[in-house]
């Protein structure tokens, strides 16, 4: 590049650094994941404005209040937005083609005020579509126990 300093071709050395983090999901998400083990979908509720968050949130952004109330939500919800994914981010950080396109949806559960991003079964989606949660208590990674959605009808 034009930095004005010509030091010739520099052999590119790669120095991989892989710091490991052990995230705690915290008490709220623990309770959410424990619920999914029993097939229950639990949202947190703000004691002041009554807004329900799914996935649960610890603090209400509107009220600056701790969301210490809980509600059990139905499996049903509505597609707020969707995308047909042709790619995914590979381990090297580049977008690699999927063998088969898949749908990612933003779903607002009935009774919730926030959305869940998840996979939708099948190859068709539309905004406003009614969907039903697919729960997999045996999921290899517990974050995938709310495995995705399927069309409700």
């Amino acid at each position: 590049m034009g930095a004005g300093i010509d030091i010739g071709p520099v052999p590119r050395s790669s120095i991989p650094i892989n710091p490991a983090f052990q995230w705690s999901v915290g008490n709220w998400m623990d309770y959410f994941y424990d619920g999914l083990k029993e097939g229950k979908i639990r949202g947190s509720k703000c004691p002041e404005c009554g807004k329900v968050s799914l996935p649960p949130r610890m603090v209400c952004q509107h009220c600056f209040a701790k969301c210490e109330d809980w509600v059990e939500l139905p499996e049903t919800g509505t597609v707020e937005s969707f995308t047909m994914a042709h790619v995914k981010v590979g381990a090297n950080g580049e977008l690699e083609d999927l063998p088969q396109p898949e749908i990612i949806v933003m779903v607002k559960h009935d009774g919730a005020d926030t959305c869940v991003a998840a996979r939708l079964e099948g190859q068709n989606a539309s905004v406003g579509m009614k969907v039903k949660a697919v729960i997999d208590p045996e999921a290899e990674n517990f974050v995938n126990m709310l495995a995705g959605y399927r069309p409700a009808e």
Binding site: I104, A118, V143
Partner: peptide
């Protein structure tokens, strides 16, 4: 990191 990140969607 407690939900979306690990789901890789």
């Amino acid at each position: 990191p407690t939900f979306d990140r690990q789901r890789w969607l």
